[in-house]
Amino acid sequence: MNLDFTQIVSSIPYILQGIGVTLKIVGVAALIGFTIGILLALCKIGRFKGLKWFADIYTSIFRGTPLILQLLLIYYGTPQLFDIKVTAYTAAVLAFGFNSGAYISEIIRAGILAVDKGQLEASMALGIPYKKMMKDIVLPQALKNILPALMNEFITLTKESAIVTVIGVTDIMRRAYIVGGNTYRYFESLIFAGVIYYLMVIVLTLIGKAVERRMRRSD
């Protein structure tokens, strides 16, 4: 067996810098995904048939096709349609944001529907307008139902973000791959990248648990 982790030591800082890149993509994509998710969920439970259709079709398409295809379409396809240049980072953030928006909308929709109908009735009886009822009564309670699933989605996003490597974003994965190529130590550098991803997931899991505990305490 030929294993020597010391060979990649000098490249460790370089790989570690990828954490920032990965986090930036995941963070911004999560924000976009969450926003899209809420809007789509509201469309799905709302009264307007047109919006409902749109949201359902959106979800169906983004869940029904490979993420990597969506990523490549945005990166290579958009410049062909419109006369604009899409950076790899932008393409990554958009693809992940749009994609997770579809999943998150389903999570939120289910969370909203799980809120007791009596809450809506009490709100209506008090004359609380729909928007305020959603924002202050329904969504805070729905959030509690959806937090675990949302955290899962976030973790998935962190791991799946590694596929941005294919469009040349220098995230953790790509850096490990480059270091592997330069030193002919693929195993060591990839294992190192794996450890970083794993630790990030563990940290996210712990944060999720802590937030959940906190929310449970508040009622």
């Binding site: 009490a122 009564i137 805070p140 309670q141 009622d219």
Partner: peptide
Amino acid sequence: VFQQFNLFPH
């Protein structure tokens, strides 16, 4: 006023 109270739990 409802049978099940329907207070806002949060």
